[in-house]
Design a protein around this nucleic acid. Sequence first.
DNA 1: CTGAAAGCGCTAACAT
DNA 2: ATGTTAGCGCTTTCAG
Lengths: 368, 368
Amino acid sequence: MDPGLAHNGQMSRGGVTRKPTVYDVAARAGVSIATVSFTFRQPARVKEPTRLAVEAAAKELGYIPSASARGLAGGRTGALGLLTRAYRPTDPVLGDSAGSAEDDPNADCRLFPLYFDEIGRGVEEECWRRGYAVMLAGATNSNSEAVLTDIAGRVDGLVILSGAVSDHELERIAERLRVVVVSDPDLAGSVPHVAVDNAGGMRAVVEHLVEAHRLRRMAFVGAVDDSDRRERYATFRSTLHDAGLPAPDRPIAITVDPRARPRDPIDRDALPEAFVCENDEVALGVMDALRDLGVNVPGEVAVTGFDGIVAGRLATPRLTTARQPLTRMGAEAVSLLFDRIEHPQEPTVARYFPARLVVRECCGCPAA
Amino acid sequence: MDPGLAHNGQMSRGGVTRKPTVYDVAARAGVSIATVSFTFRQPARVKEPTRLAVEAAAKELGYIPSASARGLAGGRTGALGLLTRAYRPTDPVLGDSAGSAEDDPNADCRLFPLYFDEIGRGVEEECWRRGYAVMLAGATNSNSEAVLTDIAGRVDGLVILSGAVSDHELERIAERLRVVVVSDPDLAGSVPHVAVDNAGGMRAVVEHLVEAHRLRRMAFVGAVDDSDRRERYATFRSTLHDAGLPAPDRPIAITVDPRARPRDPIDRDALPEAFVCENDEVALGVMDALRDLGVNVPGEVAVTGFDGIVAGRLATPRLTTARQPLTRMGAEAVSLLFDRIEHPQEPTVARYFPARLVVRECCGCPAA
DNA sequence: CTGAAAGCGCTAACAT
DNA sequence: ATGTTAGCGCTTTCAG
């Protein structure tokens, strides 16, 4: 056919510039579309002058290869996905209630960055290092299935942060797509994952409270509803037990608000010596509640967290916590994904990272 | 043909489960592939029982629509791109030298989140709200063109953060793809963008120094090499001039290291009364340098920044700065992009946001 | 309301 | 070393 109208009759027609394709580049360079493709994907297969001609033509035309076409033809997209839970509900029913955070530069730091933002950074860096693009999706409770399916169709592999989707959906998707989960040992054995040593971190926190501060009566604050939290709670109890100290029968319940405050009212007159919290967000909520009650931290009661998010460093007094190597964990998740892509038959793996005790003022230690 | 081997002879063959396609779903539901497509894209066009049958078949098969195929057929990808500069070079030649930051939880806060992380968050949230996926790409100096082309082929529109690519590359891509730039008024008029009111923010900072602290001799620290910085420097000078005060002939040069320290040596014996820095990162670098020299901030000299990143809030003393509404700016960039997608013929727009003075200890104000 | 069929732009055999 | 060609999985007229 007339090369000027090749394939879709664009460019030359009218004033409207349609996106140039391999056909246009091929026509312009006087070669076939295969040669154009080779020029970009396997330059070694093309003779120097031909390659230069194609590159020149592509440049002149402003040619941008279509990732959709490449993905379809090649069977892979060249992108990895990162599925997190959205910061706040985007459900139109719930609306956007936290819109004013921007007005208070300090308030913003409470919600961003959270631990999964730091994991995300590790994921991004490792993907870029390997020449992959990163596709981001954020799920809310109401749309997680649709979001999951959508992103699954866009990528060669998926890093899923714990809590973004239900275990059921997760297992379902894991059958169809290479997946690595960050921070949920619940599915250990069935889905590859990277996780933190919850037991080691929690033990370090409690032992610090016991040994450095001689604290004895401690309460655990948090929802014990997934394996990470269960592990932390269990270790909290066992560490206390090993030290010959009493452990409370049950944890103090919390709400699910990002700036969580304890749901069980705190009794001003029956305070423990320490509130050991499941994570930093909860700990910050507890500190708020205590401040409202006029309770001095760490004077009257110590507070500890878990994760090591930025907001804990920002709090007054600064939060003592067990820090996860979040960025490194994100990067490792990506590595695991690539291992799986290259060796699909290998058994499911898990990688654990240590949590490091970070001593700050909230436990009663002096300010640095 | 035999529907059992439809299209690519998968599923039924061997033990290997190939990805189910519309053909498989159609065969299973006893309908045509068009009906499968309609079921998901235009449910209203399909009779209830048919729709349910298709949905059931899809669920049983674990069908995941291929975004590549959809993109190719539909002419749009359903994803928006966000192009930033990578945190650290991923160039193999330069290597990865900052790898130990993870070991110091505080050091990490110096590099993350930076201002573009907060913009990114706004971009993500707005995209998700509109049902779009976000594609992330990070460019280094050495690979920006390849990264740009790659991501451009993957998305329907692109948010580009200032500094991620050269103006030349930017203009080139803007001809082929809907683009919105964040923070670079250099291309005002030719490319849609959102930016901050540099003049207003800088004036507020300098006037605070002049009026609240009676400071007179000030130095500006920063590389004056893009329009944002030029604006800030120009306003620094004009504000001083308007106040009848002397302005230095030239800014103090800095290095490009993320923890920038002034390249011009600071003269311990000829300090100005204030170092007004182009942004927070530079200001933190200056504070480090002053600490090394044994200079007290703000006792001997005041220091101010610009942007309002988290690390400035974390510094000791805490950094006085002009805060940009970064998250909101990111969201607005996405809105602009959608406006452009819906009304391609509209003229190029620009949106400016105010920068708010955030007074903290570095200027000499008492701690809150 | 549903089916048939024509591409979307590219890759990768297979030919030459 | 380069050209020809057959799909990749889906959307979307156009018929029926």
